[in-house]
């Protein structure tokens, strides 16, 4: 059995690629389109993924036989020589078989547009960084995520105050009433995503949330065709710690929202516990661009489903200073000429 898989056009034998715009598979050469069911009629490979397929030291392109350049975590890639897409089956097998995925909705062209728009608005980015023509390198990647479901039970305790003031004669009275406030409750949380790849920056992966889970479907390797993919290298147990921290915060905030009618509230004590924790391994789409500038990596990520953009650029001090100078001048002029009407 082949360890490396490539999907082929039934008319001409060319490589097939998932097209986010039509949500169909398109042949790169004869432009034929195929729906999900049309691609492969023989036994679906997904079943064979249940068993662990042992990882090999090297993989070869199914089209031209060249060795595939792949990191330990790369699970879908393309051949450097013939550009055909290859999927390394062993890295989707056994415990690495994802349960679900969200297919790409944003095309590469759209992602490039988003990048251009975004970079033009980065007022602090140095000019030569903006001018860098690296946009071609933007890559669609299925990023591994752990999605957690859980139940949460929480309690908060604190002191609330209500103040009331009135005047009588020559005196102003301020009355402060102190209350002991307690709130307890429970809630369910669905599909809290945690980045399962060490390569991808957790902070930025958190910022591209949320994904719309209505598009979540069962995993099929077919969707990988035409994109890069990574397998997880953050274990579910490590990710669970991150998820717990987040859900505990959500629960606390949720309970705090129910404390109203007070002038002030200070939290003294909180307790949040989680139960019925389930995880599911999922592939979520992103576009990634890594820009190197003066030896430092600057990352740009687009949510491959919603198009939300996050990223980081080098910051030029002189541009920051110029910005501050302009704001200063504007505020100063408005204060002087506008303020003169009121003094």
């Amino acid at each position: 059995m082949d360890v490396v898989k490539g999907y082929r056009c039934t008319s001409c034998g060319g490589g097939l690629k998932f097209d986010p715009a039509s949500q169909k598979w398109k042949c790169q050469y004869c432009l034929s389109e195929f729906s999900k069911n049309e691609i492969e009629t023989d036994t679906p490979i997904e079943e064979s993924l249940e068993k662990d397929i042992s990882d090999l030291d090297s993989y070869h392109c199914t089209s031209c036989g060249a060795e595939l350049i792949a990191d330990n975590t790369t699970s879908a890639t393309f051949c450097l020589y013939c550009r055909s897409h290859s999927i390394i089956k062993s890295r989707f097998s056994g415990k690495f078989k994802p349960k679900s995925l969200i297919p790409f909705k944003i095309t590469k062209d759209q992602a490039e547009e988003l990048y251009k728009k975004w970079i033009s608005k980065r007022i602090f980015a140095p000019k030569d960084f903006k001018r860098k023509e690296e946009i071609e390198k933007i890559t669609g990647i299925y990023a591994p995520f752990w999605l957690f479901n859980c139940k949460s039970e929480g309690m908060i305790r604190g002191e609330g105050t209500r103040t009331r003031s009135w005047t009588s004669g020559n005196y102003q009275y301020t009355q402060t009433k102190y209350y002991h406030v307690m709130r307890g409750g429970h809630a369910k949380y669905h599909k809290v995503p945690v980045d399962a790849s060490k390569k991808l920056d957790d902070k930025f992966m958190h910022m591209i949330e949320p994904y719309n889970y209505n598009d979540l479907t069962d995993f099929s390797m077919k969707y990988m065709s035409g994109f890069m993919a990574e397998k997880y290298d953050v274990e579910a147990s490590e990710a669970e710690v991150v998820m717990k921290g987040r859900v505990e915060k959500y629960m606390e905030e949720r309970l705090r929202e129910t404390v109203d009618g007070y002038t002030s509230f200070s939290l003294h004590d909180k307790k949040v516990s989680l139960s019925d924790i389930h995880n599911e391994y999922s592939m979520l789409p992103i576009y990634l661009l890594n820009n190197k500038y003066k030896g430092k990596d600057h990352i740009f990520i687009v949510n491959g489903q919603t198009g939300k953009v996050v990223g980081d650029t080098p910051i030029s001090r002189s541009r920051q200073f110029a910005f501050m100078g302009i704001v200063f001048a504007i505020v100063w002029i408005i204060s002087v000429f506008g303020g003169a009407f009121f003094v």
Binding site: M155, G160, Y179, H180, V181, M182, R183, G184, G185, H186, A187, R254, L255, T258
Partner: peptide, 8 residues
């Protein structure tokens, strides 16, 4: 979300 207890 259920607010199961609430005291002031």
């Amino acid at each position: 979300f259920v607010l199961s207890s609430s005291r002031d």
